[in-house]
Design a binder for these strands. Sequence first.
DNA 1: TGTACATCAGTGAACGCGCGTTCACTGATGTAC
DNA 2: TGTACATCAGTGAACGCGCGTTCACTGATGTAC
Lengths: 236, 236
Amino acid sequence: MAEAVERRKRYREQVRDEIKQVALGQIARDGAAALTLTGVAKEIGVSGPALYKYFAGRDDLLTELIVDSYASLADALDAAGSASAEAPARERLHAVARAYRAWAVAQPHRYLLLAGTPVPRYDAPAETVDRARAVLAPLLEILAAGRSWPRAEPLRAELAEWIAEVPAVADWVRDALGPAATTAPDVALAGVVTAWVRLHGVVSIEAVGLFNGMGLRPATVLALEMDALADAVGLD
Amino acid sequence: MAEAVERRKRYREQVRDEIKQVALGQIARDGAAALTLTGVAKEIGVSGPALYKYFAGRDDLLTELIVDSYASLADALDAAGSASAEAPARERLHAVARAYRAWAVAQPHRYLLLAGTPVPRYDAPAETVDRARAVLAPLLEILAAGRSWPRAEPLRAELAEWIAEVPAVADWVRDALGPAATTAPDVALAGVVTAWVRLHGVVSIEAVGLFNGMGLRPATVLALEMDALADAVGLD
DNA sequence: TGTACATCAGTGAACGCGCGTTCACTGATGTAC
DNA sequence: TGTACATCAGTGAACGCGCGTTCACTGATGTAC
């Protein structure tokens, strides 16, 4: 009967999810480099080799965790962008930045899995580069509301050339901007790169623990950085 | 004879240096998490246990590498600050930023040893926190030439409180500022935090490799970020 | 100048550990007739 | 309803590997008298 086949499939999916969840827990505790299949198996209460029925190996599991995490972060930013769709651009920038930080602070090691030191003896598949770009899409739409940014001229020039040379990037930018854009694509992209640098700067320092013992709230620094950017590019 | 004792001492120091240099090479190749004593020993051409004559263990070696690296980075920034002592503050900020990036780009994994994902199963001694602060001293002096920064008000307030409550920080700020300061300590400190966030943002993204395939030069982004900061705080 | 002793860098064997992965297998569940 | 077969999750033993660290030791060098 097809019903039994489906039940098995659903069970398989459940077990896969449990494995991934436990693996994330281990990463949250000791970092991505400390992830081991035998450790996961032990925590689930199953023999080590059993996991090979669900994943081809440790690297396969790690890759899937990374891909899932990119998707999860992208979803969080998308949601923040959509929820604030009617707000002024400056407020939207803050909203997306808060969502970025909230996602990272909830599971610092998971954030570092995406944007931290590469895991030794693990080669990330090439596709992950595209995933990283997708994360930044909501920022692109918001920063397209900017007016101008004379200081960014050198960076603009480099990015304009990039857009001109790589069709995939040109498509991505055109799609994300939409018809409401009041700014040239390369100006918006310069804003996105800057926003990304500042987001990652604040959030990774916090995730690594380097703000500890300094009398400041990371959220305050992040808000300042986003306000300064909004000032520079002329967001309302 | 005392001469022989000294010769032995010098030899000991040479071997210690060789061990550290080889260890840095391994970190440069595979990252800090992949550092192993046996690997270092093999590369030097010596048995594993021999290294215990020079370091108490793997963590001891790692700690010394970190402490050395903080000192090396601090030296590089100090040198850049001193060399540009007569230049306008904006130019000095660029000079220190370039030195920071140059140091990190020369050995990305060494930079990530200081500011990247913590190494699994390694507990950093508490002293490293003070070392991290020392690195930022040259920036403090430069940003003390700023005029004002209304946007930074919330961050200023937090930092002013920190300065007031922790004497060690107050001393550090007073010493680094000197009498030439035209700005309140908390404003200068807000500038330093911001500069640090942006430096680390650009440099760590580059070190991890996330800029790869994006049509931009990290140096351009860094220069833009420093110029934007100089604009915001009113550096000449 | 010669001899007994001290120092100390480096060795090789060994310990216990955990890892990723393979392999032949068991045993429960469902399917076909 | 009963029987032969297929599917597949999970097991336990095993392989080869590399790790940090300890220990008793060797052998060269220098020191004291």
